[in-house]
Nucleic acid binder design. Structure first.
Lengths: 339, 339
DNA sequence: ATGAAAGCGCTAACAA
DNA sequence: TTGTTAGCGCTTTCAT
């Protein structure tokens, strides 16, 4: 910038004004400076700018698993909205590990990101460092118990309820669930939805029908095997996340059980290629991209809003509805169920 | 830092020394400062540090499609290695758009990232801004024609050759390919491998057996339909990327054609859930995570290496081998092919 | 309308 | 061994 100023024969202050589009510059000068900018291939140093302005135009996004299509879809939404509003995003993976999460947040904080988007069941790690300072943060998907701030999430209870209700409507009476760790809000809510739907239909829920996975593919496979080998196996399975659904399908193929003829499968989370599966997967689809977009929007609002929100005790919460996508993996129960 | 210094009754220089682990500090002082650090919950301001040091400990990663499992797996590798070495990564999506790519690079440059990892078929956008200044950059996966710098890529020719050879070995004589835009190095190489394998087996390659997709799911579906409707349809299809393979499988299911009984499918790129498919997918698996790790390693080397590489004209190139994972979507051709 | 200069938080060279 | 200080490149207030 110094060089540019010299080349154009003006002061750095003036160059800065031009770069930032201040209108108080004489057109003649402005043109001369523009040329110098061009000539020297000048790129503003955002680091210096950030230091002065105390804003980095960067936000951190912390997710438990970057390779999970759900989170990458959300990230996609975040990225797009961020770009629209002039924010870059630093992606951090915690691998479902609390230590990692703490470290990542600390790093982000040191980098002075303007805000954080996070999916985490643990409030403390974040509360610690971030909320205490009224730091802009919005939780998405997984909301820690007791958290009262900004968040965007799916109505998991309703989604699960409707999913199971659909299964029951098809005629199923033996419906099992593959859930996850109960301390995750998403899991607890989906479980509640499942229980309520079963209860409303006056259907029993034998203990073994409730399987606990860990949201990874392998656990879906294992839980699936468990379920299929039961003396009285379910005729329909509701799987609480995308990866576990995939694992479950693997188990079903391996056991040479026919879906949906012998067993129905309804998965949580849709993905582009759910319709490429054989059978095409019936899913309860979350609005992944929209979740990211909306979370980013909310975060930027928080960052840029001059008024720190009067009703500060209660944050904004956006609740997204999931949508049932009926395809071919669900059907009425077989007249003669397996075993 | 100023406050910390005052609290501990020392100068900022000393605090800086402690924070950076310089060993020339008296233990007593060090302890007092450590306590002050703790008491004030001090987090070093990396922005200021970056400005002073002219290093941000941040790299940019530019990919055509963040939602593609291939790139997210690579990103995962990048993230892990980056963390190990103290680098954060800013993820940028270009959506296969050259304009976008240019913009993203410009932003990254303004943010003074220490280096860039990029998958792009277009050298110019990158060359422009980055290579000209001997800026640390390593290409991965897609390498622009004529590029001579650092890169990590799969041996696509060999991979495709072996894939098609396997199909031929199974007895197939009518093998089709679903490729992509030819200006992509990966596509050209895989195509060459296919042709060579066919040629070596003295098998004909009718023009309609070469389908051109765009690496998106939908195009795999469309190309698949095209192929299946041919008067003399292939008995095996080699699909050049993961998403197109998925689309192809969708077409096959929809047409109620049985795979592998009536048609064999071999896809490029593996993913965790390829084994959950019905049938379990045979794939030519690239080392995605390793590609990311290796690219990051190479980039950090470039960034931190004090000597700017004597043989500067020719960059390092890491070539990864793909591995054939035989599952159930491939089988000998049917005795009575469709139509 | 433009220039001069202070200072954002940090590091490192130099002084003590 | 520790303190002092000059910038890193930018923005912005205050003079002019």
């Amino acid at each position: 910038m110094h060089d540019v100023a010299r080349l154009a024969g003006v002061s750095v202050g003036t160059v800065s004004a031009v770069v930032n589009g201040h209108t108080t510059i004489r057109p003649k000068l402005r043109k001369r400076i523009d040329e110098a900018l061009r000539a020297l291939d000048y790129h503003p140093n955002q680091i210096a700018r950030s230091l002065k302005l105390q804003r980095t135009q960067t936000i951190g996004m912390v997710v438990p698993d970057v390779a999970n299509p759900f989170f990458t879809s959300v990230a996609h939404g975040v990225e797009m909205e961020g770009q629209r509003r002039g924010y870059s995003v630093i992606l951090c993976n915690t691998n479902e590990d609390l230590q990692q999460e703490r470290r990542q947040l600390s790093i982000l904080f040191s980098r002075r990101v303007d805000g954080v988007l996070i999916s985490s069941s643990n409030y403390d790690a974040a509360k610690d460092r971030l909320t205490r300072r009224r730091f802009p943060i919005v939780f998405f998907d997984r909301i820690p118990p007791g958290y009262r701030g900004d968040a965007v999430l799916t109505d998991n209870f309703s989604a699960a309820y409707r999913a199971v209700q659909y299964l029951i409507g098809l005629g199923h009476r033996r419906v099992a669930i593959i859930a996850g760790a109960l301390d995750l809000s998403v899991v607890a809510d989906r479980m509640d939805g499942y229980r309520k739907a079963m209860q409303d239909a006056e259907l029993p829920v034998p203990a073994p029908y409730i399987q606990r996975g860990d949201f990874k593919l392998q656990s879906g496979y294992l839980c699936g095997l468990e379920l299929l080998r039961l003396p009285a196996p379910p005729t329909a399975i509701f799987s609480c996340n995308n990866l576990m659904t995939l694992g479950l399908m693997g188990a079903i193929v391996e056991q040479k059980i026919s879906c949906p003829d012998q067993i129905s499968v309804l998965g949580f989370d849709d993905f582009d290629w759910a319709a490429s599966f054989n059978p095409r997967l019936t899913t309860m689809a979350q609005q992944m991209c929209e979740m990211g977009r909306s979370a980013m929007e909310m975060l930027v609002e928080r960052i840029e809003s001059p008024i720190p929100e009067p009703d500060s005790e209660q944050g904004h919460v956006v609740v997204l509805e999931a949508e049932l996508r009926i395809r071919d993996s669900t059907a009425p129960p077989p007249s003669n169920p397996i075993s």
